[in-house]
Design a protein around this nucleic acid. Sequence first.
DNA 1: CGTTGTCTTGACGATTGTCAATGGTTGTGG
DNA 2: CCACAACCATTGACAATCGTCAAGACAACG
Lengths: 253, 253
Amino acid sequence: MPTQTLRPKAPTQLDIDCKHCALKKICVSSKIDRKELTNVSLRIIHHKPIKRGQYWFRTGEKFRSIFVVRSGSIKTFMLTHTGNQQIHGFHLPGEIFGLDALNTGCYTTSAQVLQSSSVCEILLEKLDDLCVLLPSLQRQLLLIMSKEIHNEQCLIAMLGNTTAEERIAAFLSNMSERFSQKGYSATEFILGMSRIDIGNHLGLAVETVSRVMTRFRKEGLLTAQGKKIKILKRDRLYKIAGQTVDIPVVLDI
Amino acid sequence: MPTQTLRPKAPTQLDIDCKHCALKKICVSSKIDRKELTNVSLRIIHHKPIKRGQYWFRTGEKFRSIFVVRSGSIKTFMLTHTGNQQIHGFHLPGEIFGLDALNTGCYTTSAQVLQSSSVCEILLEKLDDLCVLLPSLQRQLLLIMSKEIHNEQCLIAMLGNTTAEERIAAFLSNMSERFSQKGYSATEFILGMSRIDIGNHLGLAVETVSRVMTRFRKEGLLTAQGKKIKILKRDRLYKIAGQTVDIPVVLDI
DNA sequence: CGTTGTCTTGACGATTGTCAATGGTTGTGG
DNA sequence: CCACAACCATTGACAATCGTCAAGACAACG
């Protein structure tokens, strides 16, 4: 059901999958790539959907690929020394995950499915090949990672200096922006993650998330029935968020 | 005075500057590079020291270069919408800063000198040239940025889930590790930044930093006279930090 | 239709921030 | 070289946000 909400009306198969894909410029399944990459054999696996709770990779596994969400949503997290999750981000269709492993050779995070998701996998060996043949590809990856660094720096700024209200307002504003960028409604959407995950990601207790959401509801900023969110006063929400609106954006180019 | 503390005994000029440099593999002033890059004209400017408080770049300036600290220390920060600084990191000799601008074309942070510092500047145009001639260079940059992403993810994990004591213990343990990696004492060092900056970076009020430092002192974990730190019980400090010791490492390869 | 996990709400306590005051340190200019 | 100013560090008292504990309602899933 939630997955369906994320899916646009009924264009071609290509449009559905690659229109807002972060890798559309380098992906063999995208028009642009096909003409550029006619002589390159790039191994990209288009996986079938897997269900909620399953993993694409876990912390410590050997790095083999980077991934792009095709549908559904993914969360990436590390485990703290106490065994708890620390969620780094939520990944919507078209967004990349798995880049953190380029450095160590092992995934430093785990990637778990929130809503039944399908994913493109780009095998590392082939990525290396491609980078030799297409120098612009590495530059592309540099840009992506640079943006990721920037986003995370913004998130750090937020976690250090903001109240619970500001964080949640910023989070919702950000989700709104991202849905909007991908062609979905900016004011009505279904959050793929639980309140628990939201709290975890923002460094807040579940109860605090719940209370703030209730406050927002009572103030007429939004309606919220479980994961279904409808933003009524976008301006005021943005104002509460400060100028931190574009903060936890995960990835999209 | 503090700068002097960071400087090793008396090896060759080359050793002093490049031994622990993050870019030693690509830097023209390093042995490795010289043999690899004989045919490449790489424009690296070795700047003379500039004083505390001055800027290497400011938020919004057009991206022209990435930088490597040669001596002293640098802080990078963003300004919040309320006009306050949010410090992203402290950069010690051999560590890179300025990478955040690769994405937007403008620096998203400002870089300010903490202690009188000298810096290497690598001009972007030349970097592009070099990347074409040396594909391995871009891969190198990818690794550096991947590590930076990992470090920041760890910092995010820390900011969301830890007490003031844990943060400061993690911060001190981290500084200890980094000094150690660069060949300085792991137990005695001089912090280049003020308590205010530490608090800012860790999302704590100055007073909290001060109180925790006092508590650590009373418990015999360390001595601290202003910026001069002497760690007495490294194990207990690490234990308090949890396994978050390697967390806010900024950069070094 | 029961079991399990999630969401909400309340009461309470504690860590941490704010305000305020004092003493120390650094740096600059006479 | 000293004196002054500016900044920084420390400590205390107090308030407030937020986390913890607890309980109940709701929703999801087999």
